[in-house]
Structures are given as C-alpha cells and as structure tokens.
C-alpha cells in the first residue's frame, strides 16, 4: 500500500521557536494511523503543520505531490479535513450553517443536502438542534458538530485532534464507529491524535509515538501496544 500522505523531515515553528524537529510520518491510503504522545509533545503541531496553519520546513507529500507551503484553504481544497483542537465551532452561526460551511468548497448542492441528512442520521442530537446557535451546544455536542463538519467535506484525508474530547464513553464508541465506517466506505485515510491510548490503539492500524517534537517509535498498533515502555507510560499497566 502506498503512502497517501507522507511527511519527511518536518520542522515547524511558532514565531522563532521550533516545536517539531525533523519528523517522518506515513499515512497509508485508506488506513487509520494514530499519533500518541504526552501533553505538549507536539501532536497538535503536527496536524497544524500538515495543513499549513503554521510555518514549517521539510516535505509534506499528498499523493506524492508536495503541499508544503500551500495556504490552509488550498490544502482543504485537496480534500484534507481537520477537526481542530478546541473544535473550531462557529459559535454565532446555527448548527446547520456550521455543517453547510463544512461543504463550502463543494458545488454539488443536492449531494451536500444528502450529506447533511447523513450527518444528522449519525448524530440525531444535532438534528434536534439544527436551528440553534452552535455556541449554545454543550461541549460534547460541539465535538460531534466538528466531526460532522469535517465529514461534510467528503474528505480524502481526515486529521482528527482528540475527537473523543469531552464525549461521554458511549458517544466516544459511537463516534469511532462512524469514523471507521466512513474510513471503510469512502477509503478515507485517517490521522488520529488521541489522549486515550488504549482506544487509539484499538481503533488504528498503525501508530507513532511522539516526544518533544520527535518521533520516538512507530509500528503497527499491535507492536506499539506490546511495548513495555509504552504500556507503562501511556496505557497505565
């Protein structure tokens, strides 16, 4: 399987400070890859750098084409959806407008309308609140909205920054089910950042471990999950 998204020697900066120090990463076509690490390790930064939100150096290849240095909005147009840390809700707009924005770059109106219904089918709670200002949703509901908004793009690559954040355990399971279904049916490649390592390892097929801006381990989730250090540091047993 060829790499759908490949990252080589990625260095990323906040102002003058470097947060990533040369980092390699491969996202298999139609695969689910987890990115694990402690708080402040640089997981969010990786996602931001990939979609051009912050200044970075090194190579970022999507389908073999370099996308480093391209503006965020153009990366999105290549089919990269990002569920950002903090959810990125448009608080003053309605739930439905938020979803509509997810499909902003699409022209196929009929299909978009159908996709909105599909998201509502996934998250019936959102349908109930469709005319409500999104800022009035609870944290968990906003997280669902963020995932829904990303799905509206019909993405080819999804970058998910802690999609389970703030969700009740049952909802977490559901969101991951949905993501898995989309991953299978649309062959979306997923890069998942997750605090809950157990969950991530169960869900993904490959994983990377990041520490202070460097990849320190990578492999199949089975290998990573079996590693003594990982178990102690991230899985807690």
């Amino acid at each position: 399987m060829s790499a759908h998204l490949a990252v080589r020697g990625l260095r990323a900066y906040y102002g003058q400070t470097r947060a990533l120090h040369g980092l390699d990463l491969d996202l298999a076509e139609g695969g689910i890859t987890a990115l694990l690490g402690a708080n402040g390790a640089g997981k969010t930064t990786v996602l931001r750098a990939i979609c051009g939100m912050i200044r970075s150096e090194g190579e970022i290849l999507l389908d073999g084409k370099a996308i480093g240095g391209i503006a965020v909005e153009d990366v999105v147009r290549l089919g990269v959806a990002h569920v950002p840390e903090g959810r990125g809700t448009f608080v003053r707009l309605t739930v439905e407008e938020n979803l509509g924005l997810g499909a902003m770059i699409r022209r196929d109106r009929a299909e978009v309308a159908r996709d909105i219904e599909r998201v509502y089918a996934h998250f019936p709670l959102l349908k109930e609140r469709r005319r409500q200002q999104a800022g009035t949703l609870s944290g968990g509901e906003q997280q669902m909205l963020a995932v829904g908004r990303a799905l509206m793009l019909r993405p080819r690559v999804m970058l998910l920054d802690e999609p389970s954040f703030g969700l009740a355990p049952r909802m977490v399971a559901e969101v991951f089910e949905i993501l898995k279904a989309v991953n299978r049916s649309d062959r979306v490649s997923v890069l998942l950042v997750e605090q809950n390592a157990t969950l991530a390892l169960a869900f993904a097929d490959r994983a990377y471990l990041i520490e202070t801006g460097r990849i320190v381990m990578s492999g199949s989730t089975a290998e990573i999950g079996a590693d003594e250090n990982v178990r102690r540091a991230y899985l807690g047993y």
Partner: peptide
C-alpha cells in the same frame, strides 16, 4: 455565509476552505 464565517472565526473558516 462564508463572509459571516470568515469574520466570526477566521481560523476555522480557513479550515473549511
């Protein structure tokens, strides 16, 4: 809609293209 989104939350607006 795009204009309102861009004004209210530019960062998220970029993320939807």
């Amino acid at each position: 809609l795009a204009m309102r989104a861009a004004a209210a939350n530019p960062e998220s607006a970029r993320l939807v293209g």
